[in-house]
Design a protein around this nucleic acid. Structure first.
Lengths: 231, 231
DNA sequence: ATTTTGAAAATGTGATCACAAAAATAATTA
DNA sequence: TAATTATTTTTGTGATCACATTTTCAAAAT
């Protein structure tokens, strides 16, 4: 049942078992440490985290509703396989979604939050420098999340995270076959635009960040990568 | 625990209990037959559909991951309350999302499917004529769903449905206080644009359909409606 | 050697139970 | 009468069990 070991993740007091299972599986999927096609068994996971089938099933159901997992006809649960076409759908949707999220965040952004974004970006650069891909990925997500959640009534975040969840497993594969994942980012450009409260410029920085980041994989490159990984 | 009675919904052979519970609750929420603020109890629902807590809990968890339900700190589960600001977030996101979905569907649309769209639109007009709001709503959703799922690799549909789920309870309130809900739609315009495979025109028809439909509620009108409904 | 058959193990599903926390109700006090 | 306390009921949670289906693996047959 895969290395959902990752890091056991601290479990805050009062957090329910199914919540913990959900968070742990979610993070494992999002940073690509569970391979597509790998099938997950309820009992296996339950045993791995020393609990029982009931809460694990609830966690798996939630993840399937979030698009992170897929239930087959035989009721087996697995991480969906990636295809070049699906990848392209995911990336184009991500671009539209996050541009919109960024625009709607601008009117609510504070200087304090922009400072926080700079910190996160710095931390991400450090993670990249020490080739710590998993943490760089996590910090990149935190950068985007911190931007979008500036909007207090925002309802888009769960959808953005759903996209991340669906792209995660592919990133896991990519990281095994490509040395550097995020050589460039457009975060500085986004920050500059935010300081000016320039919605268009922010949206365009986000668009570029995505299209030059994960969106940079071309159709043929993806098929090669998937073949290489035995998908 | 509310009239999730609605219609008991036929239960296809082989459908699991939690799946059935999920579908039934989902539909009840989507057509607005469960009021915001109304709290749902696991045992209550289980009893109402003659099953047990386990599968009902799974259904509720899925719905909470889909944005349809909210778990409070006391672990109570309820339909989220609407606010004017949240409503505006939902509608603007819906517009962006569905325009994108429509654009990506155009290259895959077939004449047969366009014919099907015309049928659905006709059926919806009939439902409107006989003031059958719930079915008109369902048929409107089927129209949009049929369009977007023309794209076989589409990953956007769960997100669109999540928006519908979040708007559903408000529609239920609106239906109690407003006579006609969908006096106009832009479906014919969308169909004409589809016949010409004109992406821009299709997107613009969908945009208008949303902004003139549910998007037509103005900030003040929403606050009035919510106050009227005792929210 | 490949396929088919049969037994054993693994797995998903849902009902039930025990426990703790929360809510509702009744009893008591100010 | 209103507020507070105590008791009862309701509710969410998670472990366990039984059952049916599926998968796995070994033996037998073609």
């Amino acid at each position: 049942m895969g290395n959902l070991a990752l890091e056991p993740l601290d479990r805050p007091e009062g957090m329910t078992t199914h919540e913990y299972a959900h968070r742990r599986l979610r993070q494992a999927i999002m940073v690509g440490s569970i391979r597509p096609g790998e099938s997950l068994t309820i009992r296996g996971i339950a045993e791995a985290m020393e609990s029982s089938p009931t809460p694990v099933r609830e966690a798996l159901r939630r993840l399937s509703s979030e698009g992170a997992l897929r239930v087959l006809d035989n009721r087996r649960i697995m991480v969906p396989r990636m295809t070049a076409d699906r990848f392209s759908e995911l990336v184009s949707l991500r671009s539209v979604l996050e541009q919109h999220a960024a625009r709607r965040a601008v009117p609510h952004i504070t200087e304090r939050r922009i400072d926080r974004l700079e910190e996160i970006d710095r931390a991400q650069d450090e993670a990249i420098a020490r080739k710590d891909n998993a943490n760089a990925l996590l910090l990149n997500q935190e950068f985007h999340r911190t931007l979008y959640t500036a909007n207090p009534e925002q309802v888009i975040m769960p959808m953005v995270e759903s996209i991340w969840l669906q792209l995660g497993p592919f990133l896991g594969i990519a990281m095994e076959h490509v040395a550097q994942l995020y050589f460039v980012d457009r975060h500085q450009e986004a920050i500059a635009a935010l300081r000016k409260r320039d919605e268009d410029a922010v949206a365009s920085a986000i668009k570029a960040d995505i299209s030059e980041g994960i969106g940079g994989f071309e159709h043929a490159a993806i098929e090669n990568l998937l073949r290489l990984a035995g998908q």
